[in-house]
Design a protein around this nucleic acid. Structure first.
Length: 497
RNA sequence: UCCUCAGUAGCUCAGUUGGUUAGAGCGGCGGACUGUUAAUCCGUAGGUCGUAGGUUCAAGUCCUACCUGAGGAGCCA
């Protein structure tokens, strides 16, 4: 996806090593080159083998396969038995225009080698549709399917685009710690990290576990967010971002939650809430646009897959066509409203008046539920929505308090079908206000001395947000389950592979 | 964690109010086939019906518990 079309002479030149030996070329490059007449060597895995003659091969470089045509003179009966779905092969031959109708070019094989056989009695992937649930059980092999090939390539493109966007904007990438000693990151249950003997841990006099004997000399966990450390860096480097794994030990069993997921967290000094929203919106649109420009074939395939999956659904429950949906988000401003305005809209909405909300809107202070967010995004505004200025009670301690004494400078971006894709805020830069809020919430101010120091010395207004990378992948791929947009999902009761 | 649904061949599923020997398509295996497109055609093997109890003359089918998965909810990104 990052290669330009290679002119024929270039392909022919790259085709051979200095020793004059034919070099392997990726199938994507062969197809893009259109270098009909060239001698090529391709290597990959057999997807189909038809009529003892047509070997269809994929090497992961493209959603598209290449067909090799092998005469009896090239593959004898013994070799034919080894060419099965899933086997790895190397094919040498001349690239020609195809006589068949399913592909524009194909390779007339002069030599076929089976590199590794795949016992067809045991190989679980058949040339037919498999359920996504079944493929999850064979996650080690599902890269070999069209769907996961496409998702994996798009995922890579998005990773690259994240770094490109921030690099272009002068942001600095920070690796924040994965093992953390702070227990007030306030984002849910954490996984303990310990080298103590689980059956027989050292105890203190009162019978509690003595973590001073543990590896780090204190109780430690896997991080639930790199934000606090990100703030430290931003208050010196100006603009930073993190892109790392995050762990939540919540017993969440949904299509939108993982116990281990990847999060992008930019943190910007001298940014107020509006700057923060502007950046987040620009960022999301950049990523979507990057996908359209670099992954169109994969997106077209994923779009077809989604439509196929949804064809049995009633018309009004079907998703907008994937590429159309992506373009729509790029082309339209996100709606921006305050929490208080959202409550008003919801209170006056049809479902509220007809008592159709499972959780009724009880005015200011009501925590918005999925059904409310969905109404705002999918029914009322019909585009992404940024909600700001939430009641301080339902948000984290570090968010900047507004003058009204009731709300904080938070912002959540809600996407259709996904819900919250971004959560962020302007941070409280006043040492006094931050300390008071932490005391109200019984948070250990002393233990957080390093965090408080940034407010003590040269504090400035600053903001940041977190983007759940897999949620972005859900939106961009049209997949319905977050377990299908990460190679090896970690969820309650599942850490296989 | 809560609610609902599901678990039958390698995969996708059918299996009636409990009643003889549990079926199909795909895949596999054997064979045919030199321009196929999820190739096609002929033949064939393959099942402790999620696990453990229970009800019954009789359980894939009914009951209980547990395991696993899916959809929805909560928590959130």
């Amino acid at each position: 996806m990052f290669h330009n079309k290679i002119p024929i002479f270039a392909l022919q030149f790259k085709n051979f090593s200095k020793m004059g030996v034919l070099k392997r070329i990726k199938i994507k490059d062969v197809l893009d080159s259109g270098a009909v007449g060239s001698e090529v060597l391709i290597k990959g895995w057999v997807r189909f083998f038809r009529n003892n003659r047509f070997i269809v091969i994929n090497d992961g470089s493209s959603i598209n396969n290449i067909q090799a045509v092998a005469d009896e003179s090239v593959i004898n009966a013994e070799l034919i038995k080894k060419i099965t779905v899933g086997a790895s092969v190397a094919v040498t031959g001349k690239l020609v225009e195809s006589q068949g109708s399913g592909q524009s070019v194909e390779i007339i094989a002069s030599h076929v080698e089976v590199i590794g056989v795949a016992d067809p009695e045991k190989y679980p992937l058949q040339p037919k549709k498999h359920s996504l649930e079944f493929l999850r059980e064979i996650a080690h092999l599902r890269f070999r399917t069209n769907i996961f090939g496409a998702v994996t390539r798009v995922r890579h493109a998005m990773i690259f685009a994240v770094h490109e966007f921030f690099t272009k904007k002068g942001f600095v990438n920070i690796h924040t710690p994965i093992v953390t000693g702070s227990d007030c990151e306030g984002a849910g249950e954490m996984f303990r990290v310990s080298t103590l003997d689980a059956k027989n841990p050292p105890l203190k006099e009162d019978g509690s576990i003595d973590y001073s004997k543990d590896f780090f000399g204190r109780e430690t966990n896997l991080t639930v967010s790199g934000q606090l450390e990100g703030e430290l860096a931003a208050l010196a480097m100006s603009d930073i971002y993190t892109f790392g794994p995050t762990f939540r030990a919540e017993n969440s069993n949904t299509a939108r939650h993982l116990a281990e997921f990847w999060m992008i967290e930019p943190e910007m000094a001298f940014y107020e809430l509006t700057d923060n929203m502007d950046l987040a919106e620009e960022f999301l649109k950049y990523l979507l646009n990057y996908a359209l420009e670099n992954c169109i074939e994969d997106l077209q395939f994923l779009s077809k897959r989604q439509q196929e999956e949804e064809k049995n659904k009633p018309q009004d429950q079907r998703s907008m066509e994937l590429i159309e949906k992506i373009k729509f988000v790029i082309d339209n401003d996100f709606a921006r409203i305050t929490y208080t305005e959202a409550i008003e809209i919801l209170a006056n909405s049809k479902p509220a008046k007809k008592n159709q909300f499972q959780y009724p809107i009880k005015g200011f202070g009501t925590d918005l539920q999925s059904e409310h967010e969905r109404f705002l995004v999918e029914k009322h505004f019909k585009r992404p929505v940024i909600l700001t200025d939430y009641p301080k009670e339902i948000k984290a301690f570090y968010m900047k308090q507004n003058q009204d004494g009731k709300t904080v400078r938070a912002m959540d971006i809600l996407f259709p079908g996904i819900g919250e894709i971004v959560g962020g805020s302007q941070r409280e830069e006043s040492l006094e206000k931050l300390e008071n809020r932490m005391k109200e919430l019984n948070l250990p101010v002393d233990e957080m001395w390093w965090y408080m120091d940034t407010r003590r010395f040269g504090s400035v207004p600053h903001s940041g947000f977190g983007l759940g990378f897999e949620r972005l992948m859900l939106f961009i791929s049209g997949m319905g389950n977050i377990r299908d947009v990460i190679p090896f999902p970690r969820t309650p009761k599942n850490a296989e592979f």
